[in-house]
């Protein structure tokens, strides 16, 4: 096991974490501002990926595909918010969970209807497909590096948006006091639609980028959705900063766990069972981290009282 390999895994972990942040930020905003648990967030991720694949295939331009993932996911988000989600704000968590679970069924099967069950593959443009040499002689995929940079930029943008802009002030006010903010003359319905669409766009972009690394298929959003929930629960629901810290933590723990645990067990076991036990444990690792965090801090790392 070399240092180079470890650094590469750390970068993979970061890239994974950054993707999770794009998902988790929307989820945590929607919960923080509107008090809504949105299980269908993973569907918007899938919608973004399919939009990218369809537009890239039709126009031959990957970049147009990426733009489409943002726009189509935002539009899908806005439409769903206006038609359905809006009615759920005043409901209990139970209704929200059930209704958005139902939305997943509609989105997934609807997409299967339109695109079929076979995975689609996206071709990353030539200029992004190579690798770069990092200081220290490490070769790393340019596209993955770009994902990390994009994610970091979006994180900065979001933090600035929340803390520096007028919209951010409204969002933060909306978290603490709905009545006050509507008394201030802010159109709260529009604010909610904007926040929801923004979260959807980020999820869509994440879907398109991960879809480029792996494949685009129905159901791709669900594992990511659950990880995103783990992220925001670890970070504290409603906190963008918490989502960032949680995402990077989960990304690193998961990636490094899958890489290191089998090696670790191999020290005192035969390789076959070390691999089995190591990878079984590694797949549970982030959930253990989450349970641990909640045991000591029942409202997450950066959460206020639930």
């Amino acid at each position: 096991m070399t240092t180079t390999l470890i650094i590469e895994q750390v970068l993979n972990g970061l890239q994974f974490g950054v993707m999770l942040f794009l998902m988790a930020s929307g989820l945590t905003l929607v919960f923080g501002v509107m008090g809504l648990i949105n299980l269908a967030h993973g569907s918007l991720y899938m919608v973004g990926a399919f939009a990218c694949a369809a537009v890239a295939a039709a126009t031959g331009s990957y970049w147009l595909g990426l733009a489409a993932s943002l726009v189509v996911a935002a539009m899908a988000g806005a439409i769903v918010e206006l038609l359905i989600i809006r009615k759920l704000y005043s409901r209990g968590h139970l209704d929200q969970v059930l209704a958005t679970f139902a939305l997943i069924l509609v989105f997934s099967e609807g997409t299967r209807w339109l695109f079929g069950s076979f995975p689609l593959y996206l071709n990353v443009p030539e200029i992004l497909s190579g690798s770069v040499e990092l200081p220290g002689g490490i070769h790393y995929s340019l596209f993955r590096l770009l994902i990390i940079v994009t994610g970091a930029l979006i994180a900065l943008f979001l933090l600035a948006l929340i803390h520096k802009t007028r919209l951010g002030i409204q969002i933060r006010a909306g978290e603490s006091d709905r009545e006050m903010i509507s008394a201030l003359g802010v159109n709260i319905d529009r604010l909610y639609t904007i926040v929801f669409a923004l979260g959807a766009a980020l999820a869509g972009l994440a879907g398109a980028m991960v879809g480029s690394l792996q494949s685009v298929q129905v159901g791709m959003g669900e594992p990511v959705l659950i990880l995103a929930f783990v992220v925001i629960v670890i970070g504290g629901i409603g906190s963008i900063k918490g989502a960032l810290v949680g995402a990077v933590l989960v990304g690193l723990v998961d990636t490094l766990g899958r890489f290191l645990l089998p090696e670790l067990f191999a020290i005192f076991m035969d390789p076959a069972s070390a691999k089995a036990i190591g990878s079984a444990l590694a797949s549970m690792l982030i959930y253990m981290v989450m349970a641990g965090v909640l045991f000591f801090r029942p409202t997450g790392l950066f959460g206020l009282n639930a």
Partner: peptide
């Protein structure tokens, strides 16, 4: 462990435990 939390945290932590066992069953 889960009952130390309430609300969404409870929903999510119960989900997380189930996922933990799900992934264990898959990889064991």
């Amino acid at each position: 462990i889960s009952l130390r939390t309430t609300g969404v945290y409870f929903i999510m932590i119960t989900l997380a435990f189930a996922q933990m066992i799900f992934y264990f069953a898959i990889s064991w």
